[in-house]
Every structure is written in C-alpha cells, then in structure tokens.
C-alpha cells in the first residue's frame, strides 16, 4: 500500500499551501491616495501603524487631492486624503455618504525673495493686488506704506504659482475671493485658476526653489516647511486687522475658537490667528462593504487620530489639538458594515 501515505502527504501539503498565505504570509493591504502636502506625515504614521499591527499594510500614493477623489469615485482605494474640505460638488461626485476626518493642520505661507529684506507685511488689499497682477513692483507706494522702515527694492514682482492642480492654489484663491468677491469670476477658484501674472511650476518644491533663485519673487508654499528651508515668509493681515506671521502657534490659534466644524479654521476672526490655515482630511465611505477590510480601516483611522507623537516637529503639518482629534474619533462611530458599527461605541 504505497500510494496512500503519499496521498496523505500531498493532501497535507495542499492544506498547508491553502492556509499558509491566509494565516501568516499575506497581510491585509489597505490603500489610500491623495494630497501630496501631508504625504510625508502620513507615510510616517502608516509605517508606525504597520509596526504596531503586523497583519496590516497601508499603501499611500501622493497623486494630489483631485486624483484621490477620482480614485475614491472609482472605488479602487479605501480612503483618499485632501488638503481642503470637500465642497458640495465634490461630495456629489463621490456619490456616497463619506466621513471627512481632520488629521492635521497646515498653513500656507507667502514666500518672498527680496535682497536685504527679511520681514514683509501685507494688508488684505495688497495681497489681492499682488496676486491679481495690479501691484507689479516692489517699490509700489501701497507696499511702502505698510512696511515703514523697510527699504523695498526697485524690482518687478515675479509671481511664482502652481501649474498643477493644488489645494494650495485653492486656498489662496479662496482668501483672495473672500477679500474681493470679483476675484473668483476674474481669476477663478478651485485647484486650477488663471493667475493673471507670473510663472507656473509643478509642485510646491519647485515653487520654493524658484522663489529662492529669483530676486523679486513671491510664491505660495506650505509655511512650516518653507520657513525651515530658510525662505522668508510674509506676515498677513487676518480678519481682525492684525498682522500675523505663520508659525506653529499662529496656525494653532486658528482652532482656539471652539469651532463647531473643522471647516472653520480658514481665515477666522480670532486673536493672533494666521489666515491661510486649513485642515488635512482623510475621506472614507461611511458604509464599508467588507467586514474585515472595513474594521481594519476603522482601526487605522482610530489609531491615526490618536498618534500625536509621530515626529511632527520636522513635518509640514501641525498636529490637531486634542479637542479636534477627539471629536474626529467620535465621528468614526458612523463607520458601519451593513448597518452595524465597526468600532465599539466607547
């Protein structure tokens, strides 16, 4: 009776092959895509999450917020990340109920390159004037009045803008439109607008480089990273009329009003608050089709919203204040699989 043990061994091997990948080798892969600005922060968070959860892997592709929304619409990813809250049109495009969870704060800085000038103050009117292409020289008397004691050079203003779709563009255009309503019909609003002057480059790194290379340049880049890279950033007039330079403190000050929603950090009427502040969001469908995947997504997001010690001091984001992350964690209760919540209600 020789065939029998061989058959038994083969069956055993087959069983092992079937179980093997499911049990130990093959981890569950979650995937996300979207905003480039916070991607470094996310990559670090996800790496720490993977170390703490050996059975789970998280892939994140920084394709831009718009690309993330497109992939979420196509249901090819588990979550997308944006650096602005979704507007009504975007929410309608996604087409299913989604949670928008704030993950971090970011500030947009106006970087300038003026030989011998280290501080620059811009009123709301001058800010729009510069980006509407009306103030074309640095020695314009309007800028001179706002910067007493500063010898502004006789140089043309070289605007450096983004040529690719970007949340930074959307944020600056939104502030300009808040200050001057006609701005949105003349220059536009959203992730791609028709700046009336300047040169467009791809990516915020290219903006920073171009500003650093060009005397007379003015561009918009993520504030904390630009400051760390040695670029000079302008102080902007906030809604209260105060001139505020971007810093971790002035970005956090935008959240100190006990907002009802995470949308209300942009251009707030609060003391010491920098105006160009936004939240980064992770957008995830409320209803999860697969139980195992859905609960892994819930665990990942719950963990992300509690991870404040991921070395954010070298990153281009400011961690959320605990009141906001606590509220975001409570929002996670709305994640469900066929009506039953995926997180225990604490």
């Amino acid at each position: 009776m020789r065939p029998e043990p061989r058959l038994g061994r083969r069956a055993l091997l087959g069983l092992a092959a079937l179980l093997g990948p499911g049990c130990a080798a093959e981890p569950l892969r979650l995937s996300g895509a979207g905003a480039t600005l916070p991607s470094l922060y996310y990559q670090r968070l996800f790496a720490a999450f993977e170390r703490a959860h050996p059975g789970l892997r998280v892939e994140y592709r920084a394709v831009g917020s718009g690309g993330g929304i497109r992939q979420l619409m196509g249901k090819t990813i588990d979550f997308c990340a944006t650096d602005l809250p979704l507007d009504d049109e975007e929410r309608a495009l996604v087409g299913l109920p989604v949670l928008e969870l704030p993950t971090a704060l970011l500030g947009l800085g106006l970087a300038f390159h003026l030989p011998g000038v280290h501080t620059l103050q811009l009123s709301r009117a001058s800010l729009v004037g510069l980006f509407a292409g009306e103030i074309t020289r640095w020695d314009d008397p309007r800028l001179g009045r706002e910067n007493p004691g500063v010898a502004l050079p006789s140089l043309p203003v070289s605007l450096v803008v983004r040529s690719d779709g970007s949340g930074s563009t959307a944020m600056l255009a939104e502030l300009c439109a808040t200050i001057r309503p006609s701005f949105s019909s003349e220059v536009g609003r959203g992730r791609v607008v028709g700046w009336p002057a300047g040169v467009g480059v791809r990516g915020s790194g290219a903006v920073a480089r171009r500003v650093a290379e060009t005397p007379g340049a003015l561009g918009y880049v993520e504030a904390l990273q630009a400051a760390r890279a040695g670029l000079a950033l302008a102080a902007l007039e906030n809604r209260r009329g105060e001139l505020v330079a971007p810093s971790t403190a002035s970005i956090e000050a935008a959240t100190s009003g006990g907002q009802r929603s995470e949308r209300e950090v942009f251009d707030v009427d609060l003391e010491g608050a920098y105006p160009l502040v936004s939240c980064s969001f992770v957008v995830v469908p409320e209803g999860q089709a697969e139980l195992e995947r859905g609960s892994a997504v819930a665990r990942l997001l719950y963990w992300m919203l509690g991870a404040h010690d991921a070395g954010a001091e070298e990153l281009p984001v400011v961690p959320l204040p605990s009141s906001m992350s606590g509220r975001a964690r409570r929002m996670l209760r709305r994640l469900h699989h066929r009506g039953s919540p995926l997180l225990p209600l604490d």
């Binding site: 394709v63 831009g64 718009g66 690309g67 619409m73 975007e90 495009l93 040529s163 690719d164 779709g165």
Partner: peptide, 19 residues
C-alpha cells in the same frame, strides 16, 4: 511671458483633475 500648450496642460492637470 509665461504661457501653456496642449501638451503642458495635459501633463500639468490630468493627474489631479476629477470634474
């Protein structure tokens, strides 16, 4: 001054476009 072409718009905007 700065401008754009059909190709440059495609390469700049396609990845992030969703409307």
């Amino acid at each position: 001054g700065a401008s754009g072409t059909l190709g440059s718009v495609l390469v700049d905007e396609y990845l992030d476009a969703f409307r």
